[in-house]
Amino acid sequence: MSIYILPILFIGLFLYGFFKKINTYDTFVKGAKGAIKLVVDIFPFIACIMIAVALLRASGVTEFLAKCLAPVFNFLGIPPELCELILLRPFTGSGSYALLNDVFVTYGADSYIGRCASVILGCSETIFYVATIYLSQTKVKRLGYAIPCALIASMIGAIVACLLCKII
């Protein structure tokens, strides 16, 4: 069912544009032109985050942190096997999906841990990545309380996710 949603929306959009007498080709080109500039602007921000995350993983710092935090996670009802995933989630999208796959391979996609990991990833976002990219075209240097708010909310979300996986 859901595979039909986008094509139908697109057909509707082009038909609507035709009836509104809009040059869809010219308009599309005009919009698409903005993509290169946007990507050039956000590349350095993405590179900085990815370099830091790669170093953290290569040095084993995340693994060490995950081990230290395991008792805390255990106390909160989160399987300690998911520490590294939760630690890296705010920084990297592709990296956390790779870790999710590792969890599936090690514990199985339908295991409790596998399901928890799925829900945790589904209900959270790459907080630092979103924050830096959204700020990339503004003069703002500090985001005030935005990051703490998002981090606390995601942490509570992760706890709720593990609870829900037990029930549902």
């Binding site: 697109f10 609507y16 509104k20 809009i22 308009t27 599309f28 919009g31």
Partner: peptide, 12 residues
């Protein structure tokens, strides 16, 4: 962004 520009131009 191409599609968005059309959405924008049509007033949607």
């Amino acid at each position: 962004l191409g599609l968005l520009e059309i959405v924008d131009a049509t007033g949607l």
